Amino acid sequence: MSNQEKFSTNNAPKPVGLYPHARRAGNLLFLSGVGPRTAGSDATDSHVPGLELDKNGNFIKFDFEAQCRQVFDNVRAILEASGSSWNELIDVQVFLVNMKRDFHTYNKIYAEYFKENQPCRTTVEISSLPTPIAIELKCIATID
């Protein structure tokens, strides 16, 4: 196995640019930013759980908890397709587009998913993401 192997999977949303889902460097696995779009969707045909927009891009339905759960499922799918696992996560960077509205919900759901493994974590608010999502994760895990 190459020390600089790249990984992509159909079990996660397609990247919105020219980059892999993950890349290995030594015994570390670096995940590209992962959002809550459903597996196989891309930026032009995106399905985000809990999100419905009108033709002008305004919210009809917004369920941040559904986005949190989907982003965690997407991270897990990428980790497993790359030969790592959820318990191998060592660092999670969280990008939220609305800290005041969403942080409490995110923190609650995060605690459900990370009872056993407790990676380092940084949470920041940003003004927007490249698709109509409210959360994105950037993760580092170990890999054998």
Rank of each mutant, 00 (worst) to 15 (best):
E5A: 09
K6L: 15
K6E: 07
F7P: 01
F7G: 00
F7R: 01
S8A: 12
T9C: 11
T9A: 12
T9L: 10
N11H: 12
K14A: 04
P15K: 09
V16A: 13
V16Y: 15
V16N: 15
G17N: 15
G17E: 15
G17S: 15
Y19Q: 10
Y19T: 13
P20D: 01
P20H: 12
H21M: 14
H21C: 10
A22E: 03
A22V: 06
R23Y: 13
R23E: 06
A25C: 14
A25P: 10
A25Y: 15
G26Q: 12
N27M: 09
N27P: 12
N27I: 11
N27Y: 09
F30Q: 10
L31A: 07
L31H: 07
L31E: 06
S32I: 05
G33M: 10
G33C: 14
P36W: 06
R37V: 04
R37M: 08
R37D: 04
T38R: 00
T38Q: 06
A39V: 05
A39C: 08
A39F: 01
S41G: 08
D42N: 15
A43E: 15
A43V: 14
T44E: 15
T44A: 12
T44V: 13
D45N: 15
S46T: 11
H47C: 10
H47A: 10
G50H: 02
G50S: 07
G50I: 02
L51Q: 04
L51T: 00
E52G: 05
L53N: 06
K55D: 13
N56E: 11
N56K: 03
G57I: 02
N58R: 02
N58A: 05
N58D: 07
F59W: 08
F59S: 08
I60N: 10
I60F: 10
I60Q: 13
K61E: 12
F62N: 06
F62G: 03
D63K: 00
F64K: 00
F64H: 00
E65K: 03
E65D: 14
E65I: 04
E65C: 08
A66E: 01
A66L: 01
A66V: 03
A66Y: 00
A66M: 02
Q67T: 02
Q67G: 02
Q67P: 02
Q67A: 04
Q67K: 08
C68P: 10
C68M: 09
